[in-house]
């Protein structure tokens, strides 16, 4: 038994306080949404629609953070060859893609009553969609390659390239066409919006951190189980 454990290069992760962190993150999200809905007056032009932005904009920001993490962990994997960095990059990519999809859907729900169309080929929207497709490809690559080391190296390259491509995609689509309203940063908005936006940005950030951690735990536990099963089978057959 102990020899089997020693055969795994890393230990199974412990949840520790992360479960509590998750509960707090969701409680904080509920509180942040309640506060921002309560304190923000309806927009002069948008009416209540601007309340959609309290999820849409934080989701978009945190999507960027997730993709940045993918690039960092992918580079770190290629540098140090620690499988855990690959699993972290994968977890960040999955959560980033989730937030990316959420950003797109919320943008459409906001755009329909505001612009009168579900979709407009503007720079920000289109480059967000392209990023979604790039990271859907990344996740497909991981799903279609079984051998762990190969999967790690290939997806590190693909994740890094995808993240690096973002500014280029954005530039090219912006030259191609532009229609979006000025980017929502707290400075351009009313103080009560700015506060609400910040509150919700941190809420989504905590949720994203929690998701990445849990996804990473699941992936790492699975890898440890595979190592130990292999060790158990090999040890059993050599002894028997």
């Amino acid at each position: 038994m102990t020899s089997a454990v020693a055969n795994s290069p890393f230990e199974a992760p412990k949840s520790g306080r992360w479960l509590l962190f998750g509960w707090l993150a969701f409680a904080y999200l509920i509180a942040a949404q309640a506060i921002s809905i309560a304190i923000s007056p309806p927009d002069r032009d948008m009416g209540d629609l601007q309340k959609i932005l309290y999820i849409h904009v934080p989701a978009a920001w945190n999507m960027g953070i997730c993709y940045f993490l993918v690039a960092i962990y992918s580079m770190r994997y290629l540098w140090k060859r620690d499988e855990r960095d690959d699993l972290k990059a994968a977890a960040a990519a999955e959560v980033g893609t989730l937030l990316n999809g959420l950003t797109l859907v919320l943008g459409m729900i906001w755009g329909r009553p505001t612009w009168g169309v579900w979709w407009a080929w503007d720079a920000r929207l289109t480059s967000t969609l392209v990023m979604f497709l790039i990271f859907a490809g990344y996740l497909a690559l991981r799903a279609f390659v079984d051998e762990p080391e190969r999967r790690a190296q290939w997806s590190a390259a693909a994740g890094l390239f995808g993240a690096i491509n973002y500014p280029i995609v954005y530039m090219s689509v912006r030259w191609w066409r532009t229609l979006h309203q000025v980017q929502s940063t707290p400075d351009t908005l009313d103080p009560s919006y700015a506060l609400s936006l910040r509150l919700n940005a941190f809420a989504i950030l905590f949720i994203a951190i929690f998701f990445i951690r849990r996804r990473y735990e699941a992936a790492l536990t699975e890898r440890v189980a595979e190592h130990e099963l292999q060790a158990a089978v090999l040890g059993g057959s050599s002894r028997g």
Binding site: A12, R215, A218, A219, T221, A225, A231, G235
Partner: peptide, 27 residues
């Protein structure tokens, strides 16, 4: 939905780990 997906993945991988450890103990 994502929360439930991740939690079920975690549960499944922990079950796999427990299975692997019991297999290691049995041999």
């Amino acid at each position: 939905a994502y929360l439930f997906r991740v939690q079920s993945l975690l549960r499944r991988s922990r079950a796999a780990l427990a299975h692997a450890r019991s297999a290691g103990g049995a041999t």
